[in-house]
Simulated assay, not measured.
Amino acid sequence: MQRFIAPAVLAVAVVLGGCQASMPATPTPVHGFVTDMKAFDAFIATHPTPEQFRTAYPDVLLVMPGTVATMEYRSNNSRYFAELDKDGRITGGHFS
């Protein structure tokens, strides 16, 4: 009987650990313009949806492909031109 306890406890730990890992973490909103490029690049590497981007960076203007934008140049990382994959997730882009 006791030899079944350890595998059972291990199985429960694996299942609960799997549930924990599958729950998406809600990013803390970064207010203002993008200054931490390393954190921003790591966020983009997760291929967020436009809504996730707007939640994480509410003060950065997200310009989607096909959207009309002015030709002004911004040097403060306040406007991000996104590149999307076929599912509509952001895969990259550039500031302008």
Results as ranks from 00 to 15, higher is better:
residue 3 R to W: 10
residue 3 R to P: 01
residue 4 F to E: 03
residue 5 I to Y: 05
residue 6 A to T: 10
residue 7 P to M: 02
residue 7 P to D: 02
residue 8 A to W: 00
residue 9 V to P: 00
residue 9 V to Q: 00
residue 10 L to P: 00
residue 10 L to A: 11
residue 11 A to Q: 03
residue 11 A to E: 01
residue 12 V to H: 02
residue 13 A to C: 09
residue 13 A to H: 03
residue 15 V to R: 02
residue 16 L to N: 03
residue 16 L to D: 02
residue 17 G to N: 07
residue 18 G to F: 00
residue 19 C to Y: 08
residue 19 C to E: 02
residue 19 C to V: 09
residue 20 Q to S: 09
residue 21 A to Q: 07
residue 21 A to N: 02
residue 23 M to D: 05
residue 23 M to S: 07
residue 23 M to E: 08
residue 24 P to V: 02
residue 25 A to P: 01
residue 25 A to Y: 02
residue 27 P to N: 05
residue 29 P to E: 09
residue 32 G to L: 13
residue 32 G to Y: 13
residue 32 G to H: 13
residue 32 G to D: 12
residue 33 F to R: 11
residue 34 V to C: 09
residue 36 D to W: 08
residue 36 D to H: 06
residue 37 M to F: 11
residue 38 K to E: 15
residue 41 D to S: 10
residue 42 A to G: 08
residue 42 A to L: 08
residue 43 F to A: 14
residue 45 A to R: 00
residue 46 T to D: 12
residue 46 T to W: 09
residue 47 H to N: 12
residue 47 H to I: 04
residue 47 H to A: 12
residue 48 P to V: 07
residue 49 T to S: 15
residue 50 P to Y: 06
residue 51 E to V: 15
residue 52 Q to P: 03
residue 54 R to T: 14
residue 55 T to E: 15
residue 56 A to C: 11
residue 56 A to E: 05
residue 57 Y to V: 03
residue 57 Y to I: 04
residue 58 P to D: 08
residue 58 P to E: 07
residue 59 D to L: 07
residue 60 V to Q: 09
residue 61 L to W: 06
residue 61 L to C: 07
residue 63 V to K: 03
residue 63 V to I: 11
residue 66 G to I: 13
residue 67 T to W: 12
residue 68 V to Y: 13
residue 68 V to M: 14
residue 69 A to S: 15
residue 70 T to F: 14
residue 71 M to K: 14
residue 71 M to E: 14
residue 73 Y to G: 04
residue 74 R to E: 12
residue 74 R to K: 12
residue 75 S to P: 05
residue 75 S to F: 11
residue 75 S to H: 06
residue 75 S to A: 13
residue 76 N to W: 04
residue 76 N to D: 14
residue 77 N to I: 11
residue 77 N to G: 13
residue 78 S to Q: 15
residue 80 Y to L: 08
residue 83 E to C: 00
residue 84 L to P: 00
residue 85 D to S: 05
residue 85 D to E: 07
residue 86 K to L: 03
residue 87 D to V: 07
residue 87 D to G: 03
residue 88 G to L: 01
residue 88 G to V: 05
residue 90 I to Y: 04
residue 91 T to D: 04
residue 91 T to S: 05
residue 92 G to L: 05
residue 93 G to I: 09
residue 94 H to W: 11
residue 94 H to I: 05
residue 94 H to G: 12
residue 94 H to F: 11
residue 94 H to S: 12
residue 94 H to P: 03
residue 95 F to P: 00
residue 95 F to Q: 01
residue 96 S to Q: 15
